[in-house]
Design a binder for these strands. Structure first.
Lengths: 313, 313
DNA sequence: ACTTTACATCAATAAAATCTATTGAATGAC
DNA sequence: GTCATTCAATAGATTTTATTGATGTAAAGT
């Protein structure tokens, strides 16, 4: 049994296809086929059921794949240990970010980071929280920026900042005359929300403490971006909630529609999350430091109440 | 990096000698030397400081060795998974036993076990608790039978039985006339004890609740076996405590010297202990079942108070 | 029936791991 | 100071292994 063989097995398990797995492993298909056969012979079991299309794992194959992932991860950590010893911060690093954070946070720290850590080859992907968790667990992401807490025992977090929700209220709305908001003021039926899949929508619903979000009124508007929500609100179609950082980018004319909550302000917790195995921890810590550095200038300490980003059932 | 290379590194780290490590790995010394050099080149670090005699690990080398042990363990578990799937119980299994358990317990279950699990190649070693813990942690033992609790976070246990302490009291002793004993009756200064290194001695001292065992009286007798202690007690040199199973082997003439404790009887907890990684768990469970089976006929459920086998400081 | 897709098989080759034999450095004995 | 001895490194030969490109085969799609 070799680490190479285990990597081939993982590739086939992932792509459910020998040919594709071979390409991704930068070898020819016979090479991969033969190595996997060799491993199957050595263990005297079948890892894959080749009669099914697409190829399926056998029962024992599933267990072996899980253990193989374990082994390959632990093997990768050797390089991590060496890098750490050398103080070397570099290599490929795959970072996921949720869409409601990207436009405001990414421009704030990205330049700083890539200038400081020139040897890190950062690959950033915008993904939903759901996808991020999947990819963190199976190793396709090294870390991600998302709203927490997540209640996933395989994932650890480092909190980056707490971002209060801010009301955006058109002058036709009765709340426009209030100086500040309380949670009790908020009516989910008047709220313009992001599309399904955005955990920001879950947070807002949780903030409103609606037992069953399916029971919302008939008239609803959902959109994929805060820009659209703001325009809809400007048209008097309802109010909306924005994350604090987003309010910094508003046009002057729009700022008068903003209403902060009273303390403790409802807020979302934005964290750097990563697999509990703590692979590439040096880079994760470098990211944390860079982001914390820039965020301190933008968000002062506030008295906040954290709203969960997880959808109720 | 290959698993073979990691195994070679572990062998050198253990033996602090390339030649011996090569022998134990069943390869020639140049083979091992070159593979280790290759790994060092690949990682661009030195794992061993060859200028020191005997060979020493470098700082980074130590970290790598620890991780290598991790990886090799996880790799071994693949075979475990396969065995489990096939219901195969076999292969080499190294079991440690503490000396105060061996003579009574081993004959009770050994025959049953090797008859039932003919494919297990059982290697049994009699060792002190201290050595057992070391060898469990570094993988030189697969499991062991010892007195618990041990308070070692790397080690898990499955309790096998609770074995009461039984007083063995000569007719010249004033306690001889008591029908039963209480802990308060026991005076550590009158007690014949096993040599240092036996955890049974620690248990007895803990039982007596002596704050500082160094303050014992001048006259002390310590010996390496219960047989000697019994003979010394017969000579009127003091009383002793025996583990219950040992009392079953006494000559008829000696049985009259036995005095049980009142409930809750002080007892030692004997467990099957193993590394938390749970390697070879099928065999460990097979052992547990076999031993539990035979022990049920020998030790009825009793009202006991567990005495710790760990020496006070 | 023909094409496409996908994995297995085979023979050739490139790469590697391992071996035997030898060297060189360090240590200790006389 | 010379001479064994020990121990790891090195060199060269050999064997083993991984990989490749070409080919075969079975199944699914058209």
């Amino acid at each position: 049994m070799t680490i190479t063989q285990l990597k081939y097995v993982l590739a086939v398990a992932e792509h459910q296809n020998f040919t594709k797995a071979a390409e991704k492993s930068f070898v020819t298909q016979p090479t991969l086929s033969m190595q996997i056969q060799k491993l199957e012979d050595e263990l005297d079991i079948l890892i894959f059921d080749r009669s099914k299309k697409p190829i399926q794992l056998t029962d024992i194959g599933l267990k072996i794949v899980n253990q193989a992932r374990n082994i390959v991860n632990e093997a990768d950590r050797i390089q991590d240990i060496v890098d750490q010893q050398k103080g070397f911060i570099g290599g490929e690093f795959k970072l996921g970010i949720i869409p409601t954070v990207t436009p405001t946070l990414l421009p704030m720290f990205l330049n700083n980071f890539i200038k400081k850590y020139t040897k890190v080859n950062l690959k950033i992907e915008e993904l939903t929280t759901e996808t991020i968790i999947e990819k963190l667990v199976d190793g396709h992401l090294d870390a991600a920026i998302a709203a927490t807490p997540l209640e996933n025992e395989l994932i650890k977090k480092r909190v980056l900042y707490y971002e209060p929700f801010v009301g955006y209220i058109n002058e036709n709305d009765k709340l426009f005359n209030n100086k500040s908001l309380t949670i009790e003021d908020i009516d989910i039926d008047d709220m313009l929300l992001l599309d399904d899949g955005h955990c920001f929508k879950n947070s807002v619903i949780n903030l409103c403490r609606v037992a069953n979000p399916a029971e919302r009124n008939s008239f609803q508007l959902e959109s994929g971006s805060f820009e659209t929500l703001i325009k809809l609100a400007n048209e008097g179609l309802g109010m909306t909630l924005l994350p604090y950082l987003h309010t910094l980018d508003l046009k002057n004319a729009e700022e008068k529609y903003l209403r902060e909550f009273e303390d403790p302000k409802p807020a979302r917790e934005i964290s750097l999350i990563f697999h509990k195995s703590e692979l590439k921890m040096q880079i994760i810590e470098a990211l944390q430091q860079t982001i914390s550095g820039v965020i301190k200038g933008a968000i002062a300490f506030q008295n906040v109440e954290i709203i969960s980003p997880i959808a109720n059932k």
